[in-house]
């Protein structure tokens, strides 16, 4: 099979840093799936932290590769915010609110993961034409970034607890960040800082909300919010 021989050559030609980057991309996807399959909120937070760490590693790699200084800064920001501060905040919230478990998800875990596979196929298919347009060396990872965003969406859809929704939201942000990085080597610094600030504020506001929601309904289960519908 000449084509397979040719392909093997291609594979070995990929430079090491890109291989590492691909590995990071795959790890991000793996972690997204691990989040989908996880019921415990504590583990979800840990997975989120690990995802942040992988993201930071990927950023560092790209920074080292391209020599773009602002990426080092953005990696540091990622570590500070997504690996250290937000997980700490979430753990604290979990302790204070006493929500260690998610209830039974809307769709059972296997079905969620199966849907996840479909989403991944869709995302990869979607990314194939984009991949050819992008000129960056990291373009293979675009499909994965899209998949991570969509998977986070899926997680937010299928979970009941407000806490897992926030985690889904953060994971989605990770995917977006990674996508931006692989398509264009990162956003301008101003945008990045703005997004980081937004995320921070969002989580803080949501944290306040949690207390309010629980105060009101004695639970963090989101189906209580359905009562707020106008039609009832």
């Amino acid at each position: 099979m000449s084509s397979s021989a040719a392909r093997e050559k291609v594979v070995t030609d990929i430079p090491l840093d890109q291989q590492l980057l691909n590995a990071c991309a795959a790890l991000l996807l793996l972690l997204s799936f691990a989040m989908l399959s996880q019921r415990r909120i504590v583990s979800l937070v840990s997975l989120l932290a690990v995802q942040g760490a992988v993201l930071a590693a990927a950023t560092l790699l790209i920074a080292w590769r391209t020599g773009e200084g602002h990426l080092y800064f953005s990696a540091a920001l990622t570590i500070a915010l997504k690996v250290a501060f937000l997980p700490w905040l979430l753990h604290r919230l979990i302790r204070r609110l006493q929500v260690y478990w998610d209830t039974e998800p809307l769709l059972n875990i296997s079905a969620t993961m199966l849907t996840g596979i479909v989403i991944v196929v869709f995302a990869f298919g979607l990314a194939q034409p984009i991949t050819h347009l992008a000129s960056t060396a990291t373009r293979d990872a675009i499909g994965i970034a899209v998949a991570v965003v969509l998977l986070a969406f899926l997680m937010m859809i299928t979970r009941r607890k407000a806490m897992s929704q926030v985690i889904g939201f953060l994971s989605m942000e990770n995917g977006l960040f990674f996508g931006a990085m692989s398509a264009t080597y990162g956003m301008p610094m101003v945008v990045e800082l703005g997004v980081a600030l937004d995320v921070l504020v969002a989580v803080l506001v949501l944290g306040v909300f949690f207390f309010q929601i629980r105060e009101q309904f004695d639970s963090l289960d989101l189906h209580h919010l359905e009562r707020l519908s106008e039609r009832r």
Partner: peptide, 17 residues
């Protein structure tokens, strides 16, 4: 096992499934 060599985009992704 050879399905990933089909020279059609997207199909090479689907058929191995």
């Amino acid at each position: 096992l050879f399905a990933d060599q089909i020279p059609r985009a997207f199909v090479d992704l689907l058929i191995p499934l």
